[in-house]
Design a protein around this nucleic acid. Structure first.
Lengths: 172, 172
DNA sequence: ATAGTTGCAAAACATTTGCAAAGTT
DNA sequence: AACTTTGCAAATGTTTTGCAACTAT
């Protein structure tokens, strides 16, 4: 699941980042008396080598296959992704019943447009949305911890190329 | 999962509705050569007797138990809820990995505040959000079919009563 | 009579967990 | 050595599906 964004390549420093994802994770682990391992290191490197959205299964497919050296088990992938979220490296949300992950650390806040035809995710940023969110929360005496906003529809490309395709109702 | 809303009781006519949910579903079925059955009728009546958010499991618990007359199997409940969504009677979204349903037919458009402590859902309506949504879509040459916007946080009540409780990171 | 619907049990998925073996500090 | 992490397989929780019996048209 590729991202389509004006500033497409991730680079440290796109927001105020002092440490690399790897360094930050090492700090996180140390602060909790946990250990850095090869699978975790490999996963951080893989995940931060390219800015895209992915799920556990897609990630697994990109890693060394069952026989190969450096093979990582499914359970480890899930456990590690959870740690990355805890550590603030990744953010996750649910799409069609499965968890989708994306960079959080060093990446600016944004929301998504989801094309229900090609399944691609497009990012956008809106200060107005944050203002609106906080206003709604205030009116309802809510202490906000986060939000998810996904606009679903058909992207420009799919409108052009497959105008006649019929879609089924999607869960929004 | 109860709703907290100023206008709490559902009544036909809260939006422009000519037919009752049952009638509308009958039309839907006829237009597709499908059949109305007792389980489906019972489910419509049950589901539209009270405006709240619910999931398949909660619904099952409220129906006649395993031995009783009028017992409805789990598969039928799932199949029927899917039909209701297709028919535009219900709307559904995912919360913590399971599908949550709410009235769509005859009920005004709205979004949600989700308390991650007590799990309650609160509704709010914002024209500004729709305007923003459509503007973002236009800018990205997207044809919008829907959206989901959930603000997560702690509701007023939980802020008062359980200020010391520690929560775990929630998936937003 | 024809074709759709039901209930049950089994299957399908995505994710988590128990546990012995292996790895880190 | 003490304790964490890993990989596998088994368990979990939710939703879907195959199929024979049943039901609406």
């Amino acid at each position: 699941m590729l991202v389509d964004r004006m500033t497409s390549d991730f680079s440290l420093g796109s927001v105020e980042v002092a440490l690399s994802p790897l360094q930050r994770f090492e700090e996180f682990l140390q602060s909790r008396g946990k250990r850095m391992t090869k699978p975790q290191k490999l996963l951080i490197e893989h995940v931060f080598s390219r800015h895209d959205h992915f799920d556990a299964d897609t990630l697994m497919e990109q890693l060394p296959p069952k026989g190969a050296a450096g093979r990582i088990g499914r359970a480890t992938v899930y456990r590690t992704l959870n740690k990355f979220v805890e550590a603030g490296l990744l953010r996750s949300f649910t799409l069609d019943g499965r968890a989708v992950y994306e960079h959080d650390y060093g990446y600016p806040q944004h929301d998504h447009l989801h094309c229900t035809q090609c399944q691609r995710l497009f990012e956008f940023q809106s200060d107005q949305l944050m203002t609106l969110r906080d206003a709604v929360a205030r009116e309802n005496r809510f202490r906000v911890t986060g939000h998810r906003f996904i606009i679903s529809g058909i992207c420009e490309n799919c409108q052009k190329s497959r105008r006649r395709t019929h879609r089924k109702l999607d869960m929004i």
